[in-house]
Simulated assay, not measured.
Amino acid sequence: MRPMLATPSSTVPVGDLWSHEVKWDGMRVLADVSDGELRLFSRTERDVTVAFPELRGLAEEYADMLLDGEIVSLRGGVPSFGAMAERFHVTDVRRAAMLAEQAPVTLMTFDLLRLYGVELLSRTWSDRRATLERLELSSPRWQTPPTFTDGVTLHAATKEQGLEGIVSKRVDSVYVPGLRSPYWLKLPHRGTVSVVIGGWRPESTGTVRRRLGSVLVGVPGPDGLQFLGKVGSGLAGKTGQALLRDLETLTSAESPFATELPAEDSVGATWVQPVLVADVESLGLSSQGRLRQPAYKGLRADLAPDDLDVVDGHEDGG
């Protein structure tokens, strides 16, 4: 089963029909407890149980239940996506045990889909949530965070505290696996960063007229332009056409980036002189130093590459 997904929104819904939660920055999972064992499944239905041995004790809480939640790695009380990233693909039992000992994770549960063999998908969110809270799942390794009636205040508070954002849910909504539902809305806090464009890739090949698919961006580093990833969102229509015209006048034979780019980023790329600065919104940096979910906002005619701060390290995405 794939989890139900939230639809992006730019405004916080208000009124008694909506409840609001903190949006946790981690790994979405379905936690299935049955026959005395716990199994964890990712959004893509991959079994990731072996990666999180510290959550095994959840199977001792109740004999049968299916929970929806987010596994987070807390740093100073705030989830660190970068710290979680090294746990995503762990398949070795001994390495998983070592990581669990060094920096144990926490499962934030926010929905209950089955209890003692009874499917709860067709029940309203408010009914499912009330049942979940009655389970009183509370330990250092798993908990059920509170919900809030005032989404506007929660949105402001999570931004101030450095959290990822909020999720707003219709209290009368049922759970539809795999659906990106308009009854669940997500409002992440996206930061803006100024970057240098070092190359671009076409939307597709073999067409008469090339269209801009993505730009390759970076920021100044101690050894030159440090690659932060590719940005494709926000480049549709006239915005992309105008930027492509600017980029085609700056074509360069060599990559301006300090290190060789991965093949998945460099194949088909056209390099440009690193003189254009653009603003990009994102959810911060991953542990690999790549922008998370970036979106192009526009060129900064008032900035030159030398105006940007030199980066000497990577921050975890948040």
Rank of each mutant, 00 (worst) to 15 (best):
R2S: 11
P3S: 11
M4A: 15
A6V: 14
P13W: 04
L17D: 15
L17R: 15
S19F: 03
H20L: 03
K23W: 01
D25P: 09
R28S: 11
R28I: 07
V29H: 07
D32Y: 05
D35G: 03
G36Q: 09
E37Y: 06
T44P: 00
R46P: 00
D47C: 10
D47F: 06
T49E: 02
T49K: 04
A51Y: 11
E54C: 10
R56S: 08
G57C: 05
G57R: 09
E60L: 14
E60I: 02
E61K: 15
A63F: 07
L67Y: 00
L67F: 04
D68S: 10
G69I: 04
S73D: 12
V78T: 14
P79Q: 01
P79F: 01
G82S: 10
A83E: 14
R87P: 03
D92K: 12
R94N: 14
R95W: 01
A97C: 00
A97I: 02
E101F: 02
E101D: 08
Q102G: 00
A103V: 03
V105C: 14
M108P: 11
L113N: 12
L113R: 07
R114I: 01
R114C: 12
L115V: 10
L115M: 03
Y116F: 05
E119M: 03
L121Y: 12
L121M: 11
S122E: 15
W125Q: 10
T131S: 02
E136T: 08
L137H: 08
P140R: 03
W142L: 10
Q143L: 11
T144W: 00
P146W: 06
T149R: 12
L154G: 01
A156K: 12
A157R: 14
A157Q: 13
T158I: 09
K159N: 14
Q161M: 14
S168F: 05
S173V: 13
V174R: 08
Y175C: 13
G178V: 06
G178E: 05
R180F: 12
P182T: 13
W184E: 09
L187S: 10
P188K: 10
V196E: 04
G198N: 06
G199T: 09
P202M: 01
P202W: 10
E203T: 13
E203R: 12
E203W: 07
S204W: 05
G206F: 10
V208H: 04
R209S: 13
R209L: 08
R210L: 01
L216C: 03
G221H: 04
G224I: 03
F227E: 04
G229N: 07
V231L: 05
G232H: 05
G232T: 08
G240S: 06
G240E: 05
A242D: 15
L243G: 13
L244W: 04
R245I: 13
E248P: 02
E254S: 12
F257M: 09
T259D: 14
E260N: 14
A263S: 15
E264D: 13
V267R: 15
G268D: 13
A269L: 11
Q273L: 10
P274Q: 10
P274C: 04
G284L: 06
S287V: 13
G289W: 07
Q293N: 14
Q293I: 08
P294A: 08
A295Y: 00
K297D: 03
K297T: 11
L299Q: 13
L299D: 00
D302V: 01
L303P: 03
D306Y: 10
D312F: 04
H314A: 07
H314L: 06
